[in-house]
């Protein structure tokens, strides 16, 4: 299992650097303004982060709904254009590899993996919490921004607090920002809550909150990259379930929308009953 885990750590680290390489900010105090900012990454990485050169798919999708809002006039074509663009971009990744970016690329997932390593008593999440991420996607990313023309998921998002608010407070940009008020402290409290939760539970944000996971998860059912179980080899030892970061039994449903495709189960399987790839024979 160590080989897969080492490879995954390397991939996650490289993805973190690839998405946030703009160290020029520390000298110029100006955020990146180049064309890559129009490209959505398949991971939760805040576009308010001063180091990032890409766009957050959830922030962009939410912005489409605010543009579509009856409160915003004359922006319907732009709203649909960005909606199709973001949905198409996420769908391309999902149809190819399903939820694999959650397990191998997402910086926020990486943070959760690291914090869960801190030795403390651990909390198991009930299975019903998985429905939370669909709720956040429908209500906070789509419905509420549409009705209020305000990006409420971004306002509450702990990734924005960690990757955007904290660095920008520590190293302020050249152009002055508005003064901070009580809302910043609410955001910091939400971040503190989630950081504590990351220590206690395995991948709680991915399982219960992440709207991007809610979009990519169902793609596991039909993606080109797939997992399969050889029922004749499987001894039902339960080792795969023990090592699964999201607590699923892959032998029950290899195409589960919860599966992050991290492949820990495949490596842990003593009988080699789990297969993964674009072609399974």
């Amino acid at each position: 299992m160590k080989d897969t885990e080492r490879l995954r750590r390397i991939t996650q680290t490289l993805a973190l650097i690839a998405v946030n390489p703009y160290f020029v900010y520390f000298a110029s105090r100006l955020t990146y303004q180049g064309g890559l900012k129009g490209v959505c990454v398949p991971g939760l990485n805040c576009y308010a982060c001063p180091l990032t050169v890409f766009s957050c798919p959830i922030g962009s999708l939410q912005h489409s709904f605010t543009l579509l809002s009856p409160r915003v006039k004359g922006s319907v074509s732009r709203a649909f254009a960005s909606f199709f663009y973001v949905l198409g971009s996420v769908g391309l990744v999902g149809a190819a590899v399903g939820r694999m970016p959650c397990g191998w690329l997402c910086p926020f997932g990486f943070l959760q993996d690291l914090l869960y390593k801190i030795p403390t008593p651990k909390l198991r999440l009930p299975a019903w919490t998985r429905w939370g991420r669909y709720g956040f996607l429908v209500f906070l990313v789509a419905l509420v921004p549409f009705l209020t023309a305000t990006s409420w998921f971004s306002r509450l998002c702990p990734a924005g607090a960690l990757e955007g608010a904290v660095p920008l407070k520590l190293v302020p940009p050249a152009l002055p920002l508005p003064p901070s008020g009580w809302f910043l402290w609410l955001k910091m409290a939400i971040l503190a809550f989630f950081l504590l939760w990351f220590v206690l539970s395995s991948r709680p944000f991915c399982r219960s909150v992440c709207p991007l996971g809610a979009m990519l998860g169902p793609c596991n059912r039909f993606s080109l990259y797939r997992m399969a179980v050889d029922e004749r080899s499987c001894t039902s030892c339960g080792r795969c379930r023990e090592v699964c970061p999201v607590g699923i039994d892959i032998t029950e449903d290899p195409d589960s929308a919860d599966c992050l495709r991290c492949l820990r189960c495949r490596k842990a399987c003593p009988s080699g009953a789990l297969r993964a790839g674009f072609k399974i024979s």
């Binding site: 990146y32 308010a48 306002r155 608010a165 940009p173 901070s180 910091m188």
Partner: peptide, 11 residues
């Protein structure tokens, strides 16, 4: 995306 999202950073 190129403007600093004030919603994201809580301002």
């Amino acid at each position: 995306a190129v403007i600093i999202c004030l919603d994201c950073i809580g301002l």
